[in-house]
Amino acid sequence: MITLNNGVQMPALGLGVFQSKPEETTDAVVTALECGYRLIDTAAAYFNEHEVGEGIRRAEVPRSEIFVETKLWITNYGYDSALRAFDVSLRKLSIEQLDLWLLHQPLASDFEKTIQAYKAAERLLAEGRVRAIGVSNLTPARLDELIARTGVIPAVNQIQVHPYYSQPALRAANTSHGIVTQSWSPIGGAYTYGNAEKNPLQDPVITAVAAKYGKTAAQVILRWHLDHGFAPIPKSIKPHRIAENFDVFDFVLTPTEIAAIDALDTGVRGGPDPESLTLENYGFAIPD
């Protein structure tokens, strides 16, 4: 467990459902909860909140033991529209209280709407409808601006972190504010670097550590996250992979091994720069 800056306890490792098809999501959530996971991460823009809620209902795990987090998409930024979108997400999830609500991206082209959406989140936090609030993909400068203009420091900044793109400067900014770094795309998978694909799962540094501990490369990478104090949310729909990704609590990496994996960072992002997102190029509607 990780203690957030408002005292709420959050599981250190969870299941992500980005790009999980709706028809595959429910079974993945049930499998994860039955394997021992207690955190499920989704988003309005993933179009599978309903299926996440169905998985939570089907699993034989009390709701009080499950940490549920979802995210607000940029289309619904602004104060009133954010409040309405929150209600839509809760209805889809079929829960009465959310554990963590994040702003999914900075809307750099109209950051005022980002600020107003976060103020709506602050209201929901004060009302007890959500236990913690945070952001995703905010740069250090955007974090500073948001903190200066609002009243609650985000509990979490969910960002892209894996051995080939570890964002040390952004992680340090999170730490300086007491914000937990939650890692999306934590394993890396097929990672485009220049004109080639590099896969951390095949990196000789990581596979050597895996051989030493009798673990898979994915398990070593997830352990690297945990040993750093990050909160990874690996995605899978395959039962054996879901179980494998959770079997990482019986070993720890040495400082030398952690440093060797740190050194793999390329400094090159995979995917679009969050600062490039606008309502014109990413402002798709989220159906009720």
Results as ranks from 00 to 15, higher is better:
183 S>I: 10
125 L>M: 00
203 D>N: 14
109 S>D: 15
105 Q>R: 14
167 Q>S: 08
208 A>V: 06
198 K>D: 06
226 L>R: 09
108 A>D: 15
221 I>F: 10
103 L>I: 14
130 V>A: 05
216 T>G: 11
152 V>S: 09
96 E>H: 12
190 A>W: 05
112 E>L: 04
227 D>K: 03
130 V>K: 03
100 L>C: 15
181 T>E: 07
188 G>R: 02
201 L>W: 06
161 V>H: 00
191 Y>R: 10
186 P>R: 00
104 H>L: 06
201 L>H: 02
140 P>K: 00
124 L>W: 08
209 V>E: 07
110 D>W: 00
205 V>T: 15
178 G>D: 09
190 A>F: 08
122 E>Y: 04
138 L>E: 08
196 A>Q: 15
149 R>E: 12
227 D>R: 09
167 Q>H: 01
135 V>E: 09
208 A>F: 06
97 Q>A: 02
186 P>A: 05
165 Y>E: 08
96 E>A: 01
151 G>T: 14
104 H>N: 01
189 G>R: 04
189 G>N: 05
196 A>D: 15
202 Q>N: 15
99 D>Y: 01
223 R>H: 07
140 P>R: 05
90 L>Q: 14
171 R>P: 05
136 S>I: 02
108 A>W: 07
221 I>K: 11
106 P>T: 10
165 Y>C: 09
223 R>D: 03
139 T>Q: 10
117 A>D: 05
203 D>E: 14
128 G>W: 09
176 S>T: 12
220 V>L: 05
90 L>T: 11
117 A>P: 04
168 P>F: 04
208 A>D: 13
90 L>H: 10
227 D>G: 03
209 V>H: 05
218 A>W: 05
118 Y>T: 08
125 L>T: 06
161 V>P: 02
185 S>M: 12
93 L>C: 07
149 R>A: 11
204 P>T: 07
222 L>V: 14
210 A>L: 02
200 P>R: 06
120 A>R: 02
105 Q>C: 05
170 L>F: 11
210 A>R: 11
174 N>I: 04
143 L>Q: 13
183 S>G: 12
154 P>R: 03
135 V>I: 15
226 L>P: 11
167 Q>D: 12
111 F>S: 06
183 S>Y: 09
178 G>I: 09
202 Q>H: 14
212 K>H: 14
208 A>T: 15
211 A>N: 12
107 L>T: 10
199 N>F: 02
136 S>C: 12
203 D>S: 01
165 Y>A: 03
159 I>L: 06
